[in-house]
Structures are given as C-alpha cells and as structure tokens.
Amino acid sequence: MAQQYVVMKMGKELYGAPVMQVVSVERMMDITPVPRTLPFIKGVVNLRGTVTPVIDLRERVGLSAAERLDSEAMRIVIVEVDTMLVGMIVDSVEDVVTVEESQVSTPPEVVGGLRAVYLHGVAQLGERLLVLLNVNRILSDVEVDQLKEVEKRVRG
C-alpha cells in the first residue's frame, strides 16, 4: 500500500505528514498567543473564520526553535485529526511524495527528541531520510504533556 506524504523541512531534516490528514498549507499569519499553555503551542490563528490552534513542529519534535531563521519559506501546515484542526509551523514545505509501505522501516527508539510512538516509521527518500509522523499521536498526547507540565510547575 502506497501512501502519499507532504514533505516538511525543519533544519536539515525531512518530516512527512500523511496527505490524507493535511487540509491545507498556509503562509505564516498573525498568531495570537494563548498564555499559560505548553511552550510549543504558539497560539491561535484566524483560518478563514475558524479559530485554529498552531503549534511549532520544531519544538514539538524536540528540535531547537532558536536555530530557525525566519524566512518567507515558513509555512503553517493545517492537519485534521478526528475533525480537530491544528496548524503546525515548519521551516518550509518541499513536496508531496509517494512512499510504499515496504520502504518504511521501524524507527529507532528516539529520533531527535521524539519517541518512537510519535512516528509511523522512517523511509529512505533518495539520499535522505524521511521521518514519517504519526500525526494522531502527536496531537492527541497533548493532554498528557500538559499534565506533566503542571506537575513540573507544582513540584518544581
């Protein structure tokens, strides 16, 4: 079974989000911060009238956001999980590629800062590696993270 992925670039790394879950790719827009949320939640944007939360995918996958050079190429990739819309900020969007399931290998336990449960797998894309994201997990485990954050604040 072949799956199509939107290839997103962050630093030198390539990440893939299933095309079926990508609603649209937007240019950067005004983001209204939502105070006292997790650091990677950047805020909300007005997506054609719908208030949509936006996260920084760099920070979410454990890359440093400080290394990013703001540029015209930055995009917000809007994905849909269970009718929930969330935007992910990436350095740039490269392409859409087709990956055969047979090309996908199980990811190592940790890729960057991201544990394997957040990944669907890793695929060879020519010379380079494409890290396939499990978008559902990345967006659904936020509650768990949020709880941990609260715990950290309480316990110090």
Binding site: R36, V44, V51, P53, M84, L139, Q146
Partner: peptide, 8 residues
Amino acid sequence: LGRYLEQV
C-alpha cells in the same frame, strides 16, 4: 478554541 485547547 477547539478540542486541542480545551484544557485552557
């Protein structure tokens, strides 16, 4: 704000 931010 949507389900993603319902904890807020």
